[in-house]
Simulated scan of single mutants.
Amino acid sequence: NIFFGLRIPALYRAGRFKVILIAVVISLVYPNSFKWVLSNYNGINIINLLLSIVLFTMGTTLKVDDFINVFKNPKAITVGISAQYIIMPLMALTLASAFSLDTALTAGLILVGTVPGGTASDVITFLAKGDVALSVSLTAVSTVISPILTPIITLLLIGNQIQFNPVDMFISIIEIVIVPIIIGLILNYKFPNFCEKLKDYLPTISSIVICLIVAGVIGANKQAILTSSVIILIVITLQYFLAMLLGFVIGYLAGMDRKQIITVAIELAFQNSGLSTSLAKTHFPNLSQATVPGALYSVFQNFVGSILAYVFRKYQS
């Protein structure tokens, strides 16, 4: 029962959401405690380095079979990936316009919509009795193609409002996401026994890293969050639940079975918010609040996801 380095019992015994919540509280009370997360060290962006560690752990748990499954279930994969990169970005743009978000928050929300699915979706899918193989494949495929689609879609949606270089974003995603995953894949292929033992430690590593990223962003934007938290929380809540609802509708209309429908719904709702935060920090340096939506979305999806997993599991039992 291990998916992308997250051992289910260990994850919930450790109380990942509680750890994140504690980090958030500390960052609000002592906002300078995690200031170093958003800094550079010898020309290296710390937040990008931290995220690369998470993606490396993901790579060490991936196998070639996870990609071969794409050809075994092409319809479900096509529907899921299409929804991921069409519905989520358009929904983010619609919500940003409907609530008249400023440029920075709009950019951050768009990035939450254009990044690939988050690895936590595979854990929640397992707990919800969904199609875990489909979830793993959806996350893997959406992540691998993100260097191309994320910059292009972001450019199409907000390129007329914000100046940024999509090629630079492409390179960033290759460096932050693809390279660490490939290294992890190679390590898993060459030393499978070592990676199997390593999995016991990966939940702790990735949880700590995510906590640091969230705490760093929230601490740096404490005042902005306190003054605009109600609006942005409403937007993030709508984004999450609308994604879940549309996932159910799309899965049903596509003729999927119950497990696949639940999987697509979860996959849409769970985004790689850490990546959106990292990209916002790197490519929108003059828009500090652009990192806020991703950080808040990370906290929200971890909290609500564990509750929904219980609801789905109970409904199917």
Rank of each mutant, 00 (worst) to 15 (best):
residue 117 G to V: 00
residue 155 L to R: 11
residue 146 S to E: 04
residue 182 I to Q: 05
residue 137 S to C: 09
residue 162 I to C: 09
residue 137 S to T: 14
residue 102 D to Q: 07
residue 147 P to S: 13
residue 111 L to V: 06
residue 117 G to M: 00
residue 170 F to R: 11
residue 143 T to Q: 01
residue 159 G to R: 05
residue 116 P to T: 02
residue 179 V to G: 04
residue 123 V to P: 06
residue 147 P to K: 12
residue 117 G to K: 00
residue 176 I to S: 10
residue 191 F to H: 14
residue 139 T to C: 00
residue 186 I to Y: 03
residue 159 G to K: 08
residue 134 L to I: 09
residue 191 F to K: 15
residue 175 E to C: 13
residue 129 K to V: 12
residue 177 V to S: 04
residue 130 G to S: 09
residue 149 L to I: 14
residue 105 L to C: 09
residue 152 I to H: 05
residue 140 A to S: 15
residue 184 G to D: 07
residue 180 P to Y: 02
residue 107 A to L: 08
residue 140 A to L: 03
residue 136 V to M: 08
residue 136 V to Y: 00
residue 161 Q to G: 06
residue 125 T to F: 04
residue 168 D to M: 14
residue 110 I to S: 11
residue 139 T to V: 01
residue 173 I to G: 08
residue 186 I to W: 06
residue 133 A to I: 11
residue 177 V to Y: 03
residue 142 S to R: 00
residue 129 K to P: 10
residue 144 V to W: 03
residue 143 T to C: 02
residue 115 V to F: 02
residue 130 G to T: 10
residue 114 T to Q: 05
residue 157 L to A: 13
residue 114 T to F: 05
residue 112 V to T: 14
residue 174 I to D: 10
residue 113 G to Q: 10
residue 185 L to M: 15
residue 169 M to T: 07
residue 141 V to L: 13
residue 163 Q to E: 15
residue 144 V to D: 03
residue 146 S to A: 14
residue 106 T to E: 11
residue 139 T to I: 01
residue 117 G to P: 00
residue 150 T to G: 08
residue 109 L to C: 11
residue 158 I to T: 10
residue 182 I to Y: 08
residue 154 T to C: 12
residue 174 I to T: 08
residue 181 I to F: 06
residue 129 K to C: 11
residue 152 I to Q: 09
residue 112 V to F: 02
residue 137 S to R: 06
residue 167 V to E: 13
residue 158 I to V: 12
residue 111 L to W: 04
residue 133 A to H: 04
residue 111 L to T: 11
residue 139 T to M: 00
residue 138 L to M: 12
residue 111 L to D: 07
residue 143 T to M: 01
residue 190 K to R: 13
residue 112 V to Y: 03
residue 126 F to M: 13
residue 165 N to P: 01
residue 143 T to N: 02
residue 137 S to H: 03
residue 189 Y to W: 14
residue 140 A to D: 02
residue 154 T to Y: 07
residue 117 G to Q: 00
residue 102 D to P: 14
residue 168 D to Q: 14
residue 158 I to F: 06
residue 179 V to D: 05
residue 111 L to Q: 10
residue 141 V to M: 09
residue 158 I to Y: 06
residue 152 I to M: 15
residue 104 A to C: 05
residue 153 I to T: 06
residue 166 P to C: 12
residue 193 N to P: 15
residue 188 N to V: 03
residue 185 L to Y: 08
residue 152 I to S: 12
residue 161 Q to V: 14
residue 144 V to Q: 05
residue 129 K to M: 12
residue 126 F to G: 13
residue 153 I to V: 15
residue 169 M to H: 08
